[in-house]
Design a protein around this nucleic acid. Structure first.
Lengths: 302, 302
DNA sequence: TGCCACCATAAGTATATCTTATTGACAGAC
DNA sequence: GTCTGTCAATAAGATATACTTATGGTGGCA
C-alpha cells in the first residue's frame, strides 16, 4: 500500500471513472488501473465494481476510500507542519552565553532578538565556556556565544565583535587621571580577576603576561560584578572588557582607563553544531548583535 | 513522501540509531539513510540531528515523526478494514426473488440464511424477473433468484433446484381423484394464470402449448395466491410450482395433481453481476436453499 | 451490425529503490 | 599522539516498481 495508490482510489471514487481519475492524478489510465488492481490484490478484496460506462464502489470499497482520505489528510498535515516549521525563526532557541558577556549584552540583545524573531522564545544559559561547550555538544544548547578562537570538531563558529579590555580603578586611585595605561604597568598593582574557570581570566593573562607573576596570590572573584564592587571598595584594580564598562555601571565610584597599544581585547562570536539547520537564526543573532549600541565594540562584518 | 519513508523515520526516531532502525524495517542502513535524506529534502528541513554515536530529533522533526505515526496508524486501519470486510458474510446482502418463488421459499430460507450468516442482514426485493434484472444490472441488487435459463451479458448464474408443475383443482372437481393428468388435457379447462409479467406464466405456456389457445380470453391473476383463492372459489383450475403446493396451503378446499411425463417444471437459480466479489455469499445461499425441506424440489448439485 | 466508450492487458522503458562495498568523521583506548 | 571501533554518508551497480504507448475485449447504443 502506498500513498499514491490511496490517491488513485480516492480520485477514482470521486470521478467514478478511471480515465478521468487518471487525468486528475496526472497519469495514464492503465497506470491508474494497474495501481488500483495492485492495491485490491494486496488487500484481497474489490474496491471498485467495474461496470460499463461507470464504476461503482463496493460496500467495503466505500469504507476503504473513506479511510484512505483520512490517511491522505494526515499525510498532508506533514507537509503543512514542514512549511510552518521551515521558518527557522519559529520555535525555541536555546542560547548559551559566557558569564563575562551575558550581563552586558543580553539586556539589550534580548529585546532586539524578540523584535526580529517574535516566534522564537529564548532559553538562556549563562555559564562558563567549558560547560557551554559540553551542553552544545550534547544538544542541550543550540547556539553559544563565546570568545574566539574556538576550535572544536564538528562545531562551526562565526565572529560577532571585538572589544578592547580596559583598566578599572576606584576614584582616588593614583591612575585616576591617566588617559592611557601600558599593560606592563599592571604588574605592580593588585589586579583582581575572575577565577580560573572564566576564559576571560586567561585572555587577560595572555594579554598582560606581567600579571601572571603578581596574580598568583591575588583573590579571584566569581563574577565581574563582584570584582567591580571590590574595586569600588578599594580592594584593588581590575581589567574588564569594554561592554562591562558602559556609563551605567557605577561611574561615580569607578574610573575606566584605556590600555596602550597593542590594545588587549577579545573577540566574541557564535558557535553551533555543524548539524544545526537553522541558518537564519545565526543571521538573526548576528544582526541583532550588530544593532546593539554598546560603546567600544567593533562589529565584525563578513 | 511515501508510507515507507514515514515508517523509516518513525523507526529511526524510536531507535535513535540508523543501523538498528534499518534492521527493524528490514533494509540496509544506506537504504534507510537515503530514504530519510530524500524525505528531508522533499520537506526542505532536517528531521534528524546526526550526531556521533546517536541521532537526535530536531524540534520540527519531533512533530513530523509524531504526525507520521498518525498517518501510519490510519493506514493500518485500512488493512484492518480490509481484513474485516473480506468476510463476505459481513455486511448487507440485497437479494431479489421473483414473485412466484418468494412467498414459498423465503419463510424457510431467511432463517436458514440468518443462521449461516448472522452478520449479513438481508434486504429483500420481491418482483418480476424483468424488474429484478434491471435492479441487478444497475447495482440496486446483489443477487437475484430467478428461473433459468437466464442469459444476460456480464451476468453469472448458478442453478439451485428443479421443481415440477402440478395442477391445482378445487375439491369436487371431476379430476379430484386423478393421480396423473396429461398436460394436453388442460386445454379443455379454464386455467387461471398470473398475468404476462410473470415468467412463470410463460413457463407454463411453454410446457403446455395447449393453453395458449384457450387462455387468450381467460382472466389473469396478479399472484399465485389470488389465483389459489379463485380456484378454491370454483372459478377455474390452475398450474402451480410444487413449492406453492405444500400441505400448509389450504389443502382442505384444494387438490394438487401431478402432471404426466414429460413433467413440466422450472429450474430456479441465482444470478449476479460478474463483478460481484462475494463468492461465499453465493455458496451460502445455495447451501441454505439445499437445506430447505420443501417437498417436490430436486436440488441441483455441482 | 458497427461504432464508441471504457477498462484490461501487453510490452517496453524510465525511474526509484535496494544492495554491497567503501569512505569519512568522530570517540575512546592505549 | 596514533590506533581502533562505531556509525552514518557516499558510490556504483542490480533489481524492482511504476510509468508509458499500443492493443484487446466487452457492453451500450444507434
Amino acid at each position: 500500500m502506498t500513498l499514491t495508490e490511496l490517491q488513485y482510489i480516492v480520485a477514482a471514487a470521486q470521478e467514478r471513472h478511471f480515465g478521468r481519475a487518471a487525468e486528475r492524478v496526472f497519469v495514464t489510465q492503465p497506470a491508474l488501473s494497474l495501481a488500483i488492481k495492485k492495491l485490491e490484490e494486496e488487500l484481497g478484496l474489490t474496491i471498485f465494481d467495474r461496470r460499463q460506462n461507470r464504476i461503482e464502489l463496493t460496500a467495503i470499497g466505500k469504507q476503504i476510500v473513506h479511510q484512505a482520505q483520512r490517511v491522505l489528510e494526515e499525510a498532508e498535515q506533514i507537509k503543512i507542519l514542514a512549511t510552518q516549521g521551515k521558518d527557522h525563526l519559529n520555535g525555541p532557541l536555546r542560547l548559551g552565553v559566557i558569564a563575562t558577556v551575558g550581563p552586558y549584552i543580553l539586556p539589550d540583545l534580548v529585546p532586539q532578538l524578540s523584535a526580529r524573531a517574535p516566534k522564537m522564545p529564548l532559553e538562556l544559559e549563562e555559564n562558563l565556556t567549558l560547560n557551554l561547550t559540553g551542553m552544545l555538544k550534547n544538544g542541550k544548547l543550540d547556539v553559544i556565544m563565546i570568545a574566539l578562537p574556538f576550535d572544536e570538531p564538528a562545531i562551526v563558529t562565526q565572529a560577532l565583535y571585538d572589544e578592547p579590555f580596559k583598566v578599572l580603578v576606584p576614584t582616588g586611585h593614583p591612575w585616576q587621571k591617566k588617559k592611557l595605561i601600558d599593560s606592563r604597568q599592571l604588574g605592580s598593582e593588585k589586579v583582581l580577576l575572575p577565577h580560573a574557570g572564566h576564559c576571560f581570566r586567561q585572555q587577560v593573562l595572555d594579554a598582560c603576561p606581567e600579571l601572571s607573576r603578581s596574580d598568583a596570590e591575588g583573590w579571584q572573584g566569581n563574577s565581574l560584578e563582584t570584582i567591580r564592587q571590590m574595586v569600588a571598595s578599594g580592594l584593588g584594580i581590575t581589567v574588564m572588557p569594554s561592554s562591562a564598562l558602559t556609563p551605567k555601571y557605577d561611574s561615580a565610584r569607578l574610573v575606566a582607563i584605556s590600555l596602550a597599544k597593542p590594545v588587549p581585547g577579545r573577540r566574541i562570536g557564535l558557535a553551533w553544531r555543524r548539524g544545526f539547520t537553522r541558518p537564519r537564526v545565526i543571521d538573526t543573532i548576528r544582526d541583532a548583535v550588530h544593532a546593539l549600541k554598546i560603546p567600544g565594540l567593533t562589529m565584525v562584518t563578513h
